[in-house]
Every structure is written in structure tokens, then in C-alpha cells.
């Protein structure tokens, strides 16, 4: 729609969903994104999928980073995806996942439209680079 002539920073929502109180990773990645020049909205802890969808839509983010370490990703991610679809926001939002995601769950999540999954050991440069290259063009 618009040309890339305006230097808009990439907008991200870093989200914690569900009953998972481990937010060190989310904080670290939020800071890394900030230092990479992104605008980062942090959701805070214990958000429901609906709340994440609301935040993603209202903030009109390019990238939604979800951090899940509780193992509930197969329940929570589909709800978020469905919510974004409801608001026509799924198509132009890049969704990335971080946390503890077992290898066997990855194909299923990727099939639902998750752009990338960063598990333990992933470097911040890797995540920043991926977002830079894959953030949807507006």
C-alpha cells in the first residue's frame, strides 16, 4: 500500500501468554529488539490469548513474539491465531515463538503460520535478523 519511503521502525509485541511466570527470556528479547531499533510493546505476564490479540490489533504491530515456557503452546497459539484472523490481522503479522517447544510440536505450529521458533540456545542476533528480514512490508 504505502511505499517504503518513510523510515518506520518495526513494531513488535512481546507477549507472555497463560499461566507462565517466567519472563526473563521475554525481557531479554524485548531489550534486544529495542536495541535493534524496534518499537517494542511488552504485554506483561499472565495474559490470555484474547488480550494478546487485542494488544496486537490495537498496537498494529508488524511482529508478534510469543514466549511460552509452560508447555501450553498447542492450546494457546491456535487461539491467538484464530483471534488475529477474526480481526483480519493474521495475514500481515509475523508471528514468532520462543521458549520451550518440543521438536515434535514444531511442524504443527509452523503449519499454522508461525514464522519461526526460537528455543534455548538461539542467539539474539539470529532472532533480530530473522525479524528484520521477514517483518511484513507495509
Amino acid at each position: 500500500m504505502s511505499t517504503g519511503q518513510t523510515q518506520r521502525p518495526i513494531r513488535c509485541l512481546v507477549a507472555k501468554v497463560g499461566l507462565d511466570g517466567h519472563d526473563r527470556g521475554a525481557h531479554v528479547i524485548a531489550r534486544a529488539f529495542r536495541d535493534a531499533g524496534f518499537e517494542v510493546v511488552y504485554s506483561g505476564l499472565h495474559k490470555s490469548p484474547d488480550e494478546i490479540v487485542q494488544a496486537a490489533v490495537q498496537e498494529d504491530v508488524d511482529v508478534l513474539g510469543i514466549s511460552i515456557l509452560s508447555g501450553a503452546h498447542n492450546t494457546l497459539v491456535p487461539k491467538i491465531v484464530a483471534g488475529l484472523e477474526e480481526y483480519d490481522a493474521f495475514e500481515d503479522t509475523l508471528i514468532v515463538l520462543g521458549g520451550i517447544i518440543p521438536e515434535e510440536d514444531r511442524p504443527g505450529l509452523e503449519e499454522q503460520g508461525i514464522g519461526a521458533i526460537f528455543g534455548p540456545g538461539a542467539s539474539m542476533e539470529e532472532a533480530v535478523e530473522f525479524v528484520r528480514e521477514n517483518a511484513p512490508e507495509r
Partner: peptide, 9 residues
């Protein structure tokens, strides 16, 4: 960097 963490939410 132009980056920001928007935390009011």
C-alpha cells in the same frame, strides 16, 4: 537506535 520499549500497556 530509535528503539523503544513501550510499557504503559
Amino acid at each position: 537506535t530509535g528503539g523503544a520499549v513501550l510499557g504503559d500497556r
